[in-house]
Nucleic acid binder design. Structure first.
Lengths: 188, 188
DNA sequence: GACTTTATATAGACCAGTCGTTATAATATA
DNA sequence: TATATTATAACGACTGGTCTATATAAAGTC
């Protein structure tokens, strides 16, 4: 029964997604999680860096599962990818444009500071990219094209979340869903 | 003669681009700029928020000019856009993957905190997007398509910078250059 | 079963340092 | 002398991190 530990991780994820890494203090995390600071350092002796690594891997896995299950339900890759992007758009809208891209802020804020966290972020992005690549390979896309398309999808998705959050409307993500669908459909 | 003011703004821009908003302290800014703290609050009585607004507008304008002049030199929009993305890739690489996307971090970190800064970021992104839209309109693209393509280009560029910085290689940005070129060439 | 020992986990005071901000004094410039 | 700018000192609030004390519970011993 590791509820306290899990609650700390989940609180961290939510706060990172909305506020970013540096804006989120340990005091805020323990307050939200309901656990005292002693528990935080008991479960994460490596401090904020270790907690962050656990937190981004936790959300990273959840999102990977969403990608995989979403891509599995629709056979046509162009439609499947477009559907997933619109699904993300819905979530961003539902949060009042305050959430989305949970590891993007960590990736950017720790890029020059923590080699370890930067590598963790790279692994997570890579796992997402691989999920899209596999979907395209199943439809007999050229391997190089599949990889290139997958990178473009992840990048435009991340960038689209930033644009939609900043504009406070889902138009960018809707445009991206449309364009990525066309791109995937056209170049097999 | 506003050298002190300008130096503070330029130092702020450089630090934001590498470290992000919250990781950059005013003490670090004044140390890098060589000006004392008194000068900072003399020129920017609104404190960090006002300084940030000035700084992101400053870089935002510079990048807008780069986009415009770059797009003006090559007539074919597909080639022009691909060339610009590869130009960005070069810069990201040249910085040792420590710089790129100067206002992205501010957009993400202040999205839920400061309405003012969020709006400033939106205006800047909008100005970049408009530059690409205009280029496409000049080549007689459908206005709606032009807008949608421009949003996709900006988003994939921002996302591509994040991916390339995290992976520490330019492959994502190169893929995006290739895919955006194909996308623009295919759908007029 | 009763008692002791050991590990697990909670709880929060406390540290040095930094944050953004304010206030005030000194100094240039006109 | 008046104004514009520089230069510091200090402020309260907060940061991530350390520390000790305490509760809880499992395991070992008689």
């Amino acid at each position: 029964m590791t509820t306290a530990r899990d609650q700390i991780i989940e609180a961290t994820c939510e706060l990172f997604e909305m506020q970013g890494y540096h804006a989120t203090g340990l005091n805020q995390i323990i307050k939200k999680s309901g656990s005292p600071k002693g528990s935080l350092y008991y479960y994460f002796p490596g401090g904020k860096e270790e907690l962050t690594a656990e937190a981004i891997n936790y959300t990273g896995q959840i999102i990977l599962q969403r990608i995989e299950s979403s891509l599995a339900t629709i056979e046509d890759p162009a439609v499947a990818i477009s559907t997933f992007i619109l699904f993300v758009a819905q979530n961003v809208h539902a949060s009042g444009y305050r959430a989305g891209g949970p590891i993007t802020t960590v990736a950017l804020e720790t890029a020059t500071t923590s080699e370890k966290l930067s590598e963790e972020c790279a692994k997570i992005y890579q796992s997402w990219q691989t999920a899209f690549t596999k979907k395209l390979l199943q439809s007999n896309y050229n391997p190089q094209q599949a990889e290139s398309l997958a990178a473009t999808i992840i990048a435009s998705l991340e960038g689209g979340i930033i644009l939609s959050r900043t504009y406070k409307n889902v138009k960018p993500l809707e445009s991206i869903a449309e364009q990525m669908s066309k791109l995937v459909a056209a170049y097999k």
